[in-house]
Write a protein that binds this DNA or RNA. Structure first.
Length: 814
RNA sequence: GCGAGAGUGGCGGAACUGGUAGACGCACCGGCCUUAGGAGCCGGCGGCUGCGGCCAUAGGGGUUCGACUCCCCUCUCUCGCACCA
């Protein structure tokens, strides 16, 4: 009797062999066909590996293994993104210290979970962002960016999470809430470190046109970068200074009936009439207190105050009132707008509320409307616009208006981006200290490279300060805080903020190929050989976080001459999201899937394959309780079908055309499917082949060896075991991906569909490869068609070779 | 509101450049085997039917010999952005 498939035994055996033989390690310098297969490294939460992580990793690992079968030297590294608020917040909740908790979690992730899912990870190159050997280089990057002018410190209105007690970058505020803890984010005026992400706004946007990325990820980045084309126009305060506004509609300049400044705009201090100063201060206080959520929820209801000043419109010298209102944002454009209520809905709403006049200057038909019920934002020609009347909007009229004013130095075309600079300071403990020293004499002094890393000191109490001035826990550590100036040797103090965790993850993939070098962040030769990353698989939730930051960093380092490429990932594939029984997984629903239990019961291979089978990988899937069991029983059947019987394999040559067809068409189809990440259909095809083999009781060594190699990327442990049992001494991953015989993919007999005027009326088994002239007589001899054709005139015949013949009958006879 | 994607049996989902709609699997229903089975094997499985067929891919139009696929309109859902001038 042939033995049964025992996943626990088989998987443990191969885990051991792979480890002992270093099967997944490779010589980084000797690799001939390097393929860098990257997956997003996890943060080692105490809850353990989530089924979503497994889904992501397995989908990536299949590509790695498939490429290895294709003959590539695949580098598939793994690490731990263990600095940051996700780890620190969890430690706080557990009442533990992150320095103690993180190593424990990492150990468990690696040994108990990651190693059990059959990833071909080279563990000799593991990364942990919290160890000094790593964060030393994170700090080096900070210093390098600073020295090249990409890091600066400024006081500005920042996003503040009152629960995490730290500032956040714009990207980390999701619908007005903190990305980590979902608390409502407020604004604070604080001095913070920023990276100049906006310096590469144009490159970040245009680079998207040249990289092979999931379209939805590119779209998300395009939206976030938010390019808009317009002009800056100079207005003047009556008896006061000039100021600029940004507009995308210069063609509506004659329709301006008032001006709005953002409440935070510094010019307001100079131009506000004395009697309105108190009102302005009150309004500023009110708007500063408002949370982002309230500000958005308030959406419809506009607020603002008249500041008692007037401005002059440069196009017609009209005098118009100046207001301050929080629907104008300081961080975009110039922080001031020209309001055209007739043609902008926001201005229309504001004007309606405060009884400000409208003037229509665009008309779809050249006539003026009696009354506008809402802003007209469509196309038309200019009216009420003096010498510009009758010009068509928007391009032509805008161009003419800009040209006219530009001659007087009062306008210029301008492209604005929505993207903001990246605020990287965090008033927290668990991160790499920002390597900056403040000296009274020398000012801001970056820590010299030889003094790196700036060690994160152990703080027994690492809780955030709860300090409204945004002071960090490290400020409480006097020995850390007080230091000497590296330049003059005088007394100085350290920066006590740590940097955003997203800086750690913005460069980790450069480090993997160079982990053995401790005198440099990455080795130039290794970079040259292995980067940019060939394939990156990950979740789309990082579209405007990690994926944007790491693209920016790559461009900055390229600019500095450190990297000779300016896009980090050749290809990025965004996988889908897993739901459970049709609902989003969440703690409150109690429907979180724990991968461990399934792996223990059915084996990692069955679990891997079920995850890949339950839906389209790029769209996500629905985890159903019974699915893993069904996959296990498929593997049981495959095991029996593939192994020889007691009598061994058949010695007769394989010549059954149906079997040859089935075998070769499966290889061909699976090859296409894997390349397209269409794992569910690849598995379906493998099932069809195995069904065919079982049904026809085929015991053929060639067939078995093909099936095993097709199975290998999906179920690596089982494939290794079967391969060995068939007498191979070497790993199946050196067996090569099977190649199909195109001649065998052609069927000998095909089923023809016979249509009468497009309706299926008969099906016929016919030899493949017939011409229309050969098919027709056979079809007309088919008696079952007679009743459909009797007395009818055929006006047209359409023949699709090997597929169908459509006889079109005169329409009047139908 | 802007941008992207999607809507197919009881369910998850197939269908490449227009050419057999429902592959593969789950659930369910029969049958075999069994003391028993949450095991295994065989078969059935979109709806209606006068058993000739007819109707079915969110809804409505259109192009075509032929449409899940292409075009137009409407509806619904998911995701991203959103008082960004």
């Amino acid at each position: 009797m042939v033995s049964k498939y025992k996943p626990d035994v088989v998987e443990a055996k191969w885990r051991k062999i792979w480890t002992e033989q270093g099967a997944d390690q490779l010589d980084m310098d000797k690799a001939e066909r390097p393929f860098y297969n990257l997956m997003m490294f996890p943060y080692p939460s105490a809850e353990g590996l989530h089924v979503g992580n497994v889904f992501a990793f397995v989908g990536s690992d299949i590509q790695g293994r498939y490429h290895r079968l294709l003959g590539y030297d695949v580098f598939e590294p793994m690490g731990f993104d263990a600095f940051g608020m996700h780890s620190e917040n969890f430690a706080l909740k557990q009442g533990r210290h992150p320095a103690e908790m993180v190593p424990t979690n990492v150990e468990r992730f690696r040994e108990q979970q990651l190693k059990k899912i059959g990833l071909m990870v080279d563990w000799s190159r593991e990364i942990n962002t919290t160890v000094p050997e790593y964060y030393r280089w994170t700090q080096w990057l900070f210093v390098t960016l600073y020295k090249n002018g990409f890091a600066y410190k400024k006081k500005a209105s920042v996003n503040w999470c009152p629960d995490c007690q730290t500032v956040l970058a714009a990207e980390q505020v999701i619908d007005g809430e903190c990305e980590r803890c979902s608390a409502q984010v407020t604004k604070k005026d604080l001095e913070q470190w920023y990276f100049k992400t906006t310096a590469f706004a144009k490159e970040l946007l245009e680079g998207l046109d040249h990289i092979n990325w999931s379209e939805r990820t590119k779209t998300a980045q395009r939206n976030w970068i938010g390019r808009s084309q317009g002009a800056e126009i100079v207005f003047r305060i009556q008896n006061g200074p000039d100021f600029k506004i940004f507009t995308t509609r210069p063609d509506t300049l004659f329709g301006v009936t008032y001006i709005v400044f953002s409440p935070e705009h510094p010019l307001l201090d100079k131009i506000t009439a004395p009697e309105q100063k108190a009102a302005l201060t009150a309004y500023r206080d009110k708007t500063a207190k408002i949370t982002e959520i309230d500000r958005q929820a308030e959406g419809r209801e506009k607020t603002g105050i008249f500041i008692g000043a007037y401005a002059v419109n440069p196009i017609n010298n009209e005098t118009i009132p100046v207001w301050a209102a929080d629907y104008v944002l300081m961080g975009y454009g110039t922080g001031a707008i020209m309001a055209v209520p007739a043609h902008d809905q926001r201005d229309f709403d504001f004007a309606a509320k405060f009884n400000l006049p409208l003037r229509q200057v665009i008309s779809p038909d050249g006539r003026l409307l009696e009354k506008l019920n809402s802003a007209y934002t469509g196309e038309g020609t200019l009216v009420n616009s003096g010498r510009f009347d009758q010009l068509p909007t928007k391009e032509i009229a805008s161009r003419e208006v800009i040209r006219y004013l530009a001659n007087q130095g009062l306008a210029e075309t301008k492209t604005n981006y929505r993207l903001r600079d990246w605020c990287v300071s965090r008033q927290r403990y668990w991160g790499p200290p920002i390597p900056i020293i403040y000296c009274d004499k020398c000012g801001i002094v970056p820590v010299p490279e030889k003094d790196l890393p700036v060690f994160l000191p152990f703080l027994e109490n690492y809780r955030p300060n709860g300090d409204e001035h945004g002071l960090s826990p490290l400020r409480r550590h006097e020995d850390f805080y007080h230091t000497l100036c590296p330049d003059c040797g005088g007394a100085a103090t350290r920066e006590t903020d740590v940097s955003d965790n997203f800086l750690c993850s913005a460069w980790y993939f450069y480090r993997y190929p160079s982990t053995e070098f401790n005198d440099r962040p990455f080795d130039v030769a290794r970079l040259k050989k292995w980067l940019p990353v060939d394939l990156y698989v990950g979740g789309n939730e990082h579209a405007v976080l990690h994926l944007l930051y790491s693209r920016w960093l790559c461009k900055a380092l390229h600019w500095c001459g450190i990297l000779d490429f300016d896009e980090p990932y050749r290809r990025f594939v965004a996988h889908g999201l897993i739901v459970s029984e049709g609902a989003k997984m969440s703690k409150s629903r109690g429907n979180i899937i724990n991968p461990d239990a399934y792996i223990d019961e059915f084996g990692a291979d069955a679990f891997r394959m079920y995850l890949m089978f339950m839906g389209a990988y790029l769209e996500g899937g629905d985890f159903r309780e019974g699915g893993v069991r069904a996959m296990k029983s498929f593997l049981d059947r495959l095991w029996l079908a593939i192994l020889p019987s007691e009598n061994g394999f058949d010695s007769t040559p394989l010549d059954d055309p149906e079997t040859l067809y089935s075998l070769n068409s499966t290889i061909k189809a699976m090859t296409t499917d894997l390349a397209r990440f269409s794992y569910n259909t690849a598995i379906a095809r493998l099932m069809e082949l195995v069904n065919h083999i079982t049904k026809n009781q085929i015991k053929n060594k060639t067939v078995s060896e093909v099936v095993i190699r097709l199975l290998a990327p999906l179920a690596p442990h089982m494939a290794e075991e079967l391969w060995q049992r068939l007498g191979h001494a070497e790993t199946v991953f050196r067996g090569g991906w099977p190649i199909w015989d195109e001649a065998a993919v052609v069927r000998i007999n095909v089923e023809y569909v016979i249509q009468i005027s497009g309706k299926v009326r008969a099906r016929m088994q016919l030899p493949a490869g017939l011409t229309q002239a050969e098919v027709e007589p056979l079809v007309f001899n088919n008696s079952s068609l007679a009743r459909w054709l009797e007395g009818k005139t055929i006006v047209k015949k359409i023949h699709v070779p090997d597929k169908l013949l459509n006889l079109v009958v005169k329409p009047s006879q139908l």
